[in-house]
């Protein structure tokens, strides 16, 4: 046998960038751009969106890139400032959902018998509630304000994260290192704070990003139905006004309806893509 036959060739290799990583990067870029737009809105927007700056119903021009609305406000400025409202509501509502979802998930997972059963039946009820009608009823009942929008959305979308986190906690609580801390004499609080929560944090982050994506869509839906904050216009509110002024049926849809629609899509997609890439990495392998 010759030496050549006995040798093992070393193949060149390179860490492959997965499809998920690429999509996640795309999402990250979209989100960063949107956040920059929201933070620097006063510098980016040419006009104050609440001021009348031109004649109503203007088509796009050099002075007003996206034209003006029915009261002569600049639509492009509205769009830029609208990102502040949409993103804030999305992120804060998702935070509310995460807070409720994590607390319920951890408690239900750590005490799966009685408390867990009660909590999970509550989760089931929330999950099967007809979403949009309830959203409308709640929003209409509570009144139109930013805080109410956030609370309503947050209260409705926590159930999904709660289920995900519960399943992780269920598996964590029987890990030997949690048992070990119990044998050392640790109270449940200790095991939850030191061992369970840190190991769920990553998963919770993933579900949070996903929830932001959903919350942005819900906010748009609420505002489109005219249930958003009347003072601070979001992308959804722009659509509401476009609808009520008949822009959907006139050539104005191209600059009045399409841009906020695309912004909503981008924001939701951006967060969804990040969440997808994160879940590829984070989610426990079966």
């Amino acid at each position: 046998m010759s030496a050549a036959e006995q040798s093992i060739p070393t193949t060149r290799r390179r860490r492959r960038v997965s499809v998920a990583d690429r999509l996640g990067l795309t999402g990250l870029i979209i989100v960063v751009l949107l956040v920059v737009m929201a933070v620097f809105a006063p510098w980016i927007a040419p006009y104050d969106p609440t001021e009348r700056v031109g004649t109503p119903f203007q088509p796009p021009s050099a002075a007003h890139w996206l034209g003006t609305n029915d009261v002569g406000q600049d639509l492009f400025s509205e769009l830029v400032f609208g990102s502040r409202v949409s993103l804030t509501v999305g992120v804060v509502a998702a935070l509310v959902a995460l807070l409720i979802g994590t607390s319920v998930g951890v408690l239900a997972g750590y005490y799966p018998k009685r408390l867990g059963a009660i909590l999970m039946r509550t989760v089931d009820v929330v999950l099967i509630l007809p979403f949009l009608p309830l959203l409308i009823v709640l929003a209409a009942y509570l009144g139109r304000s930013l805080i109410n929008t956030i609370v309503v959305i947050g209260v409705l979308i926590w159930a999904g994260p709660a289920r995900i986190i519960r399943s992780q906690v269920l598996s964590l609580r029987s890990r030997e290192y949690v048992l070990a801390s119990q044998t050392m004499g640790a109270p449940d609080r200790w095991a939850i704070m030191r061992h369970v929560l840190p190991r769920t944090a990553l998963l919770a982050t993933g579900t949070f990003v996903r929830a932001v994506s959903g919350a942005i869509l819900l906010e748009a839906a609420l505002s489109f139905l005219g249930l958003g904050d009347p003072i601070q216009k979001s992308w959804g509110s722009i659509l509401f006004w476009a609808q009520s002024r008949g822009a959907f049926l006139t050539p104005a849809w191209k600059w009045w309806v399409l841009p906020p629609g695309i912004m909503i899509l981008l924001a939701s997609l951006g967060f969804a893509l990040i969440a997808f890439a994160m879940e590829e990495r984070i989610n426990p392998r079966l």
Binding site: Y177, A180, H195
Partner: peptide, 23 residues
């Protein structure tokens, strides 16, 4: 019940891989 009296009896588990928090 958890508490101080647990301090005097400690345990070593079979699997040294799973009995420690990897983080």
């Amino acid at each position: 019940s958890r508490g101080l009296h647990r301090q005097k009896i400690q345990m070593i588990f079979q699997d040294p891989f799973s009995s420690m928090n990897p983080g």
